[in-house]
Design a binder for these strands. Structure first.
Lengths: 153, 153
DNA sequence: TTAAAATCTATCAAATCTGTAGACTAACCA
DNA sequence: TGGTTAGTCTACAGATTTGATAGATTTTAA
């Protein structure tokens, strides 16, 4: 299960993607609109900035904005910043490999063999889904729902 | 990342699968052979028993053993017992659905749309990989490694 | 130079994870 | 029947992570 931190971060990114190239957005506005504790959100946005996904400007007229186009930011990149590696076990992580302390022979570990497949399946999806893709899917879902409502009327 | 508890549990299941139909296995032997803290392992095996995956017998000659054939126990079943639902967010879980507190409209939530795909990909693998499959993959990997060594000699 | 807004530091409560200790119960065997 | 074996139950405790708050500081625009 992903943490609240990750959910908040993803919500913030989707929010900022929706307003891409419309100037800096205030943390306060984002926190209010998405129901995220402001101080908590500050730390999350800072982490996303330090990873290069976001940029910011201080002082009056300042705020946060995407560091590059929504087409060039993937869910995988964002989730790794907030949640850590996608891999279920460190010994199959591509971005942050580490030896499992309890494992003997890595080549013949049954858990590892299975978890490698799981990691690849997760990464296949998250590293190929951009913020732009997510916006499209949301629009599509909203359209579908609207049609259902129209149909009911 | 999966917890140590889950890793210990999976190791124990693989260990027990390897000795299927050879009578009850002692917690103490399992703990020693797999380097798992005994008292911690006790709690894990008990949970696996309560879920029906394992069975046990008390007293002399007692111990733990698989409740059904390794062909009929999947990694998904086992992991859900120790780690909880496979889904990254509760609102896409098949085994333990729950509404996300922070989500407004579930039908148009972008995070949900993506995480549904992730859950399905994970479940596709883990619910179709049995303990017998894992044993086979281990054997295969050990054979491959042996060949490499022979080749080097 | 003043106000706005991000940034940094520190702290904290609650939950979860990992592991331990000891009493209790069931089963076997002599 | 009594002793030994081995799983079961209850409780706890330290470490780490999570979620959140408070206040001081720095940067920038007007």
């Amino acid at each position: 299960m992903i943490s609240k931190k990750t959910k908040y971060g993803l919500k913030a990114l989707i929010y900022l993607a929706r307003q891409y190239e419309q100037g800096p957005i205030l943390i306060a506005d984002l926190a209010r609109d998405e129901n995220i504790p402001k101080k908590f959100l500050e730390a999350i946005l800072l982490a996303l900035k330090n990873s290069g996904i976001l940029q910011s400007r201080k002082g009056k007229g300042g705020g946060y904005y995407l560091g590059r186009s929504p087409r060039q930011i993937t869910m995988g990149q964002a989730i790794r910043v907030m949640e850590g590696p996608l891999a279920p076990v460190p010994c199959v992580s591509e971005s942050a490999y580490a030896k499992c302390t309890e494992c003997g022979n890595e080549n013949t570990c049954g858990i590892r063999l299975v978890m490698k497949d799981v990691r690849d399946a997760i990464a296949q999806i998250l590293d190929n889904t951009t913020l732009a893709d997510v916006l499209e899917r949301i629009d599509h879902a909203e359209q579908s729902e609207k049609n259902v409502i129209d149909f009911c009327i």
